[in-house]
Design a protein around this nucleic acid. Structure first.
Length: 196
DNA sequence: CAACGGATCAGCT
DNA sequence: GCTGATCCGTTGG
């Protein structure tokens, strides 16, 4: 597995979201290493009413405006953490939400953190991704391209067939097709009709 | 399998 | 006050 360098990341957010399908997220936290393949993500763009950055920078969303390749981690519904990859150039508030992973390495730790759910459910959904990898708000603004980062991106050369659909769980701009997934993967979240 | 409600709180209006 | 890029357990078809 190679580390993903920042220069390898497409600058434009939709291109980045498509590029990240099939790539790896590696966490090394508390001496425990876990790895998962990204099988589902979503793009959040400038002028997008569903985006946290819609009303400009705030304390919470400031990492969305960082240089591409940083972790934007936020709390949703008071209990779950979600992981995004910041996109675009500094000052542009765009990001890619990591919605699901195929567990590859460190399954025992993931099972422990997730409380004994089936392996298919370990990281199937954005809150579950963070729970399985041990990610919380303290990892916000982590550089995902730094060699020794506790949270980073990798590439093992796997190429996935790409699917596209509407995003999940939104009340605004719900019709836009900005969700991307690995076609045929059983680790993708959402109703099956969304991921044919 | 789909639909629904409760949990729980930071951030914004 | 109210809302939300969610999850989980329960209920019903």
């Amino acid at each position: 597995m190679r580390r993903l360098t920042r220069s390898a990341l497409p600058l434009e957010t939709v291109a980045l979201a498509r590029f990240l399908i099939g790539k790896l997220v590696v966490s090394e936290i508390g001496g425990i290493r876990t790895v998962g393949r990204i099988v589902e993500d979503e793009a959040y763009l400038t002028g997008d009413p569903a985006s946290h950055a819609f009303r400009g920078p705030t304390q919470r969303n400031r990492t969305m405006f960082a240089r591409r390749g940083h972790a934007y981690v936020y709390l949703i519904y008071g209990m779950y953490w979600c992981l995004n990859v910041s996109a675009e150039r500094p000052g542009i508030g765009e990001a890619v939400l990591i919605r699901a992973l195929e567990p590859l390495e460190g399954l025992a730790a993931m099972r422990r953190r997730r409380g004994g759910v089936s392996d298919r459910e370990l990281a199937r959904g954005p809150g579950r991704v963070c729970e399985a990898l041990g990610i919380d708000g303290s990892f916000d603004a982590t550089d995902l391209c730094a060699p020794r980062s506790p949270l980073r991106l990798g590439d093992d050369g796997t190429v996935c067939a790409l699917g596209v659909s509407t995003r999940i769980g939104l009340t605004r701009a719900a019709e836009r097709e900005l969700r991307f997934y690995a076609r045929g993967s059983r680790f993708v979240s959402g109703a099956r009709r969304l991921s044919p």
